[in-house]
């Protein structure tokens, strides 16, 4: 389509061709690990250590 120079579809295709599945898996794994640690780990050491940031960031806890 003329004028349609850059689309979301094109970006997705571009990511598919430039990134290997292993790179994507590592990236998503790191993000999941980071999010999980900050939000869901209930181990007392981690949970209590992050107590202030959870309140400070307005994340519901107890």
């Amino acid at each position: 389509m003329p004028g349609d120079t850059d689309t979301v579809r094109r970006r997705i295709d571009r990511a598919r061709t430039t990134l290997t599945p292993a790179q994507m898996a590592v990236g998503l794994g790191l993000i999941a690990a980071l999010g999980f640690t900050l939000l869901f780990v209930q181990d007392p050491l981690v949970h209590d250590g992050l107590h202030n940031i959870r309140h400070g960031a307005g994340v519901t806890c107890h």
């Binding site: 007392p44 050491l45 209590d48 992050l50 107590h51 202030n52 940031i53 400070g56």
Partner: peptide
């Protein structure tokens, strides 16, 4: 709490950076 308040302060700062 399972950790000292100093630990909570420091871990929370680190958590903020990671956030």
């Amino acid at each position: 709490p399972a950790v000292s308040s100093l630990t909570t302060s420091l871990v929370s700062i680190g958590g903020g950076v990671l956030w």
